[in-house]
């Protein structure tokens, strides 16, 4: 039970125009099964890097530490293997795929993951039924399924499309990287509801955000404060409220 997602001493760097730049500097984090944790931190603290490293993006070089997920060495897996294992990253800036029909993309992804998990693939009819149920849930128009992936989508539509993918791929661990940015209050509520309804003893999430606001809707079990590539403080949901009022200064000073 305890070893669901476990990160120890994680160090990672990126190549910044020829010179390596250390971003994660010994990060420790555990997210037990069934819990939702939040990470808050100032710009440049390494929050997005953490999400990319966990999802398996090539540009980052892991220079130390470990990350295990369901007992497996996460860092040794390809991104698609991590997805099959149940990890999902909702992107801060979802990528556009010109000409690629959104419904076709979703179905290809769902069936790739189902195949890898040893489940039967969904035929066109079954898939359409599943996707229709979800789009209704997220107040998305069918039109979004016919358009090219994320092309010409508004900020809010992109984020809803991320949540749609998450719900269809049925991950056991989701990372939401600033999913609240660019959302108005109604969209925020819909997205939060999309996450909350996945809550179960078998689903965990890591919610990365700048704002307390999202955490009013997705109430986390624990909140971590991140700065300079490390978790510098962890506590209950009330930390977020403290941060909102007083900023990061006291945590940064305490950690110094």
């Amino acid at each position: 039970m305890s070893d669901f997602l476990k990160i120890q001493g994680l160090q990672a760097r990126i190549d910044a125009d020829g010179t390596p730049k250390d971003i994660l500097k010994g990060l420790d984090l555990e997210v037990p099964k069934g819990e939702i944790h939040a990470i808050m931190g100032p710009n440049g603290s390494g929050k997005s890097t953490l999400s990319y490293v966990l999802a398996g993006r090539d540009d980052y070089e892991v220079t130390g530490g470990s990350a295990t997920f369901k007992g497996q060495d996460l860092l040794a897996l390809e991104p698609e293997e991590r997805a099959a294992l149940g990890l999902f990253l909702a992107f801060q800036s979802p990528v556009e795929l010109p000409g690629v029909n959104n419904a076709n993309f979703l179905r290809t992804a769902v069936n790739a993951v189902r195949r890898a998990r040893g489940e039967a693939e969904l035929d066109a009819v079954a898939f359409l039924k599943a996707v229709r149920a979800e789009t209704k849930h997220l107040s998305m128009s069918d039109d979004m399924l016919k358009r090219a992936v994320n092309v010409g989508f508004s900020g809010g539509e992109k984020k809803r499309n991320e949540v749609l993918q998450m719900r269809l791929l049925q991950p056991s661990f989701a990372i939401l990287d600033e999913t609240d940015s660019g959302l108005d209050i109604d969209a925020l509520r819909i997205v939060a509801e999309g996450v909350n309804s996945l809550r179960s003893p078998d689903f965990s999430a890591l919610v990365i955000t700048h704002h307390q606001r999202l955490l009013d809707y997705i109430v986390p079990d624990r909140v971590h404060v991140m700065a300079h590539g490390r978790i510098i403080h962890s506590g209950g949901p009330d930390i977020a409220k403290t941060l909102e009022k007083q900023g990061y200064t006291q945590f940064l000073e305490a950690a110094a």
């Binding site: 390809e78 698609e80 992107f91 990528v95 992804a109």
Partner: peptide, 16 residues
């Protein structure tokens, strides 16, 4: 790379 990573993070192989 962004496009490839986006697709792979959704479970698609590089070829797909």
């Amino acid at each position: 790379e962004d496009q490839l990573f986006y697709c792979r993070s959704r479970g698609l192989s590089e070829e797909d």
